[in-house]
Simulated assay, not measured.
Amino acid sequence: MSEISYRKIAIDGLWKNNTSTVQLLGLCPLLACSNSVVNGLGLGLATTLALAASNAAVSVIRRQVPDTLRIPILVMIIAAIVSCIELVMHAYTYQLYQILGIFIPLIVTNCALLGRAEAFASKHPPLPSAFDGLMIGAGFTLVLVLLGSMRELLGNGTLFANMHLLLGETARNWTVTLPGYHKFLFFILPPGAFLCLGLVIAGKNVIDERLKARAQVEVAVTPAGGKRVRTTGHIA
C-alpha cells in the first residue's frame, strides 16, 4: 500500500470514521469506563492492542479460512487475544483490572473488532491491517480519554488521578486538583456520560462543517494582475 493509503487509514480511524463519534459503536464501555482519565486510557489501550493484534492475525490466515466458517473463526481469534490481554492486565495492573471489571472481557463483543476484521483485515495484508486496527483503536482511546478528562474534571475537580494504577509509581503524583471546587456528581453518573458524549459529537460536527465550508472556498491567483480572488467552486 502507498503512503497516501496509510494516511487515509489514519485519518479515517482517528476522525472521519471514528467508531465512537461517527459509527457510534462500543457505546456501553465508552460510557461506563470514561468517568476518569486512567479508566478510559486503560480500556482504550487494551482495545487498541486487541484491534491491532486481531486484525494482523486475521489478515495472516485470510486465504486459508473458508467463507462458511469465517465469522466463528474471527470471533475465536478475537476472544483468544482478549483473553491474553486480560491475563496481562490481571498480572501487572491488577487494581485497574478490578476497577474495569467485566468490560475487559467484553471487548470481545465490541462490534468494532469484528467489523474491522471482516471489512478490512480479511481483504488486506498484515501490515496495513495492523495499522488499521491501531488507528481505529487510537480513535476510540482518544474519545475515551477526552470523556474521562471532562467527567473527572467536572465531577471530581481532579485530573489524572490514580494514574499510578496504569503507569506505575512514577505517576502517583500526577494528580491535578482544582482548588475550592465542589464535586458535581451528575458528571460521574451515566447521564453525565451521555451529555459529555453529545457535546463531543456536536463539537466534531461543527468542526466538520467549518472544514467543509472552507474547502468550498478556493483562493486563486489571476495570471495578469496577481490579485487574490475568493471564489466558490471555480477559479476566476
Rank of each mutant, 00 (worst) to 15 (best):
C84Y: 12
C84W: 14
I85T: 08
I85H: 04
I85N: 04
E86G: 12
L87Y: 09
V88S: 11
M89R: 00
M89K: 01
M89S: 03
M89H: 05
H90L: 11
H90I: 06
H90Q: 15
H90R: 14
A91Q: 12
A91R: 13
A91P: 04
A91E: 07
A91S: 15
A91D: 11
Y92M: 11
Y92F: 12
Y92K: 13
Y92V: 07
Y92R: 14
Y92P: 00
T93S: 13
Y94T: 14
Y94C: 12
Y94D: 08
Y94I: 11
Q95N: 09
Q95I: 12
Q95M: 10
L96S: 02
L96P: 02
L96I: 12
Y97K: 12
Y97N: 15
Y97M: 13
Q98F: 07
Q98N: 13
Q98E: 14
Q98P: 06
Q98G: 13
I99G: 06
I99K: 11
I99T: 11
I99A: 09
L100G: 05
L100S: 04
L100M: 06
G101A: 08
I102D: 08
I102F: 09
I102V: 12
I102P: 03
I102W: 08
I102Y: 08
F103N: 00
I104H: 01
I104F: 02
I104R: 04
I104G: 01
I104C: 04
P105Q: 06
P105R: 07
L106T: 15
L106G: 06
L106K: 05
I107Y: 06
I107M: 08
I107P: 00
I107T: 00
I107R: 05
I107W: 04
V108L: 03
V108H: 02
V108P: 01
T109W: 07
T109A: 15
T109V: 15
T109Q: 10
N110C: 05
N110S: 01
C111I: 06
C111P: 04
C111E: 09
A112F: 03
A112C: 15
L113Y: 00
L113T: 00
L114G: 01
L114M: 09
L114A: 04
G115E: 10
R116H: 10
R116G: 00
R116E: 06
R116D: 03
A117M: 05
A117W: 02
E118P: 04
E118S: 13
E118N: 14
A119P: 01
A119N: 10
A119L: 10
F120G: 03
A121Y: 05
A121W: 00
S122H: 09
S122G: 02
S122P: 04
K123T: 15
K123D: 13
K123M: 09
H124Y: 14
P125A: 15
P125T: 09
P126D: 08
L127F: 13
L127Q: 05
L127M: 13
L127T: 12
P128D: 01
P128I: 03
P128C: 02
S129Q: 01
A130Y: 00
A130K: 00
A130T: 08
F131W: 02
F131P: 04
F131Y: 10
F131C: 03
F131T: 05
F131L: 10
D132K: 01
D132T: 15
D132F: 07
G133W: 06
G133P: 00
L134P: 05
L134G: 01
L134N: 09
L134W: 11
M135R: 08
M135L: 12
M135C: 12
M135P: 03
M135A: 08
I136T: 14
I136W: 09
I136C: 11
I136E: 15
G137W: 02
